[in-house]
Design a protein around this nucleic acid. Structure first.
Lengths: 201, 201, 201, 201
DNA sequence: AATGAATGAGCATTCATTCAT
DNA sequence: GATGAATGAATGCTCATTCAT
């Protein structure tokens, strides 16, 4: 039960699901991994198990891509910018991964445990942005709201990059500026809404 | 009678798909609509047709919720804030709609035509935010990028509201402030710096 | 969903299961009934449901064969003899039925309800023998023990007849005499065992 | 070591099949025997082989339980009673064995050879009852009919005991009396009547 | 236009058996 | 001999779609 085969299956699943959706037959996945249809079930007893494993696999892959190698010290904004760039690059390098991540997340296949593990795996990457919370619109909001916002912006940016890969730099930078503008203080004194006041306290 | 039944089918589909995903059987949809299994196909010749129709139906429903009744004149930001509030309220009123919209969007079922029609339907709502483009990080980006960003922020906010409906006001406001911060110029002079310049290169 | 088709399925199931055991594919059953594979499940939502329905169908078939037309009045022994003859004839006419009945009974597929219903269905036939209870070895035993004994003797007799159909009369009569000897008083005074004494009280 | 493992496999098969029916996977049997899935096939080249071996194993186990230690001399009826008691006790001690025996017998897995060997193995035990043949209802019947009848009565008695183990004595005695009444001449003169005469015709 | 049974291709999963180590 | 992963045919069941009524 080689680890290599397990990985081959996860990668094949990524391709197949990106192409055909979650309805992608386990048989195609197995074939695409160069494995017999029955063999897949030696590694993942059910399709749900496979999807959960795949989700974690991809989340960890993303998290690793963001935080490794370590981001050099510096102002928070610059470290976040570097993390962001890596994040978007990860999505640009293989759009299937991001697509599959979102498909699985939107399904009802994820167990609570897997969801938790996924959050934990992303903690290193998320913290680059989470540290900005005390100052911005999310000051009084649950941390997950901020994290979800950053993830949504990243997803949107990745999609924009996917449409025009040559514009990677431009889209990535715009996305980052937008994201930073979203979660940080705007500084505009004229900002008079309820929440802003709360946020500034 | 035909139109009434068609609507019943679309509404039943919304419930069924929110519950069971896109794999929701046409038979359950029909049953849930109080229609026989075969009848559904008199209204929508294939499931794909149904999904496309449903997508448009929901997009138009959302667009109408945002722009009707007309938003009173005023500063752009205030009009946008009102539109945003309506948008989020729409999602809070029936989370199924938003969920189904995203499920269909993430699938490969949408035709190019439907996607286009959906964009067109949302133009009124989107324009509330699109007018901010010339000033912010999306100045040199395709308009769709900005629009997608706003939609992503709205989706994230709706989800946050869905988790805790009692916090509607707080989440909605935070979401709007974040969104406005994302797409507008921030007052910080240093923010007109590095990345924007890069984008223009 | 014609009743005729349902019956055809039950009869096909009887043949297929007699031939291939409980492992008989639902597809063969359907085909053998002149119905498509999927259609079977319009009548019986699961294979287990089919087996339970089949069990009851056969039990009722047997019970009807024994008690209809009504057995003419007369001494208990003569009425029992007539019932027995009908019972064995039923098994001789279509050995598959008896075989399938036993296969299902030995499996774990039967629900408690079905088992009960089966017992109830046989009550008319069983009573021909149950009335003998107060006098014989089963006097102090649960009624089911006697009933099971009679059924086991019938099964054995049917099998013997199946091996040599020409000997129907001989085997059937021997079986009945044996059965009556089993459940009735032997009358031999020399019988000194514990239970016998009880039985004679 | 080989023989020990073979026996372990047969015992594991007994438990697994009693629990799950003949569909019990060879893999569970192997695991339950503390043997690897592949190893089972070193001992039994196919599942059918295993089932045949198991059948014989159990039949011999039963036969040995009935005739060993030797039944002391005495009147036939008393010797038969002792054999019967041992038979039933065997079934009460491990109901799985009897259940599995019947499951295999009812299947189509048995080869003619195995069936023959099984009969031969039981000869010692059967003879306790077979000697009664010349006098009773089975006088003019094939010996196997009588033997099958006794086996069926034993099976029924064992099942009755399994339902209420505390009633072992009572059920066993009733079963024996019934069996003896089935195969022997009853003292009632009227019993030499109709059917026996018919049989001799 | 409505109904709902019939269809059959498609899918996840199981399992006896094989075979490289 | 022992192991246990690999295999792939087989199976129960689902579901979009069709069609006779």
């Amino acid at each position: 039960m080689s680890d290599q085969r397990r990985t081959a299956l996860l990668e094949a699943a990524t391709r197949a699901i990106a192409r055909d959706g979650l309805a992608a037959p386990t048989a195609s996945i197995a074939t695409e991994a160069g494995v017999s249809a029955g063999s897949l079930f030696n590694y993942f007893p059910t399709k749900t198990t496979l999807l959960n494993a795949l989700y974690l696999h991809l989340k960890r892959d993303l998290a690793a891509a963001v935080v490794e190698p370590p981001i050099p010290p510096g102002p928070l904004r610059e470290r976040a910018r570097e993390g962001w760039r890596r994040w978007i690059r990860w999505g640009a390098a293989d759009p299937d991964k991001q697509r599959v991540l979102m498909l699985i997340e939107a399904s009802h296949e994820l167990t609570a445990q897997t969801r938790e593990d996924g959050i934990e795996a992303m903690q290193g990457a998320d913290s680059l942005f989470a540290e900005a919370q005390p100052a911005g619109p999310f000051a009084d909001q649950p941390l997950e709201f901020l994290v979800a916002t950053v993830a949504a912006m990243a997803a949107t940016t990745m999609e924009a990059v996917a449409h025009e890969p040559a514009e990677f730099e431009s889209r990535s930078n715009a996305g980052f500026t937008a994201t930073w503008g979203a979660i940080g203080t705007s500084g505009r004194p004229s900002d008079t809404g309820t929440d802003e006041r709360r946020n500034q306290s």
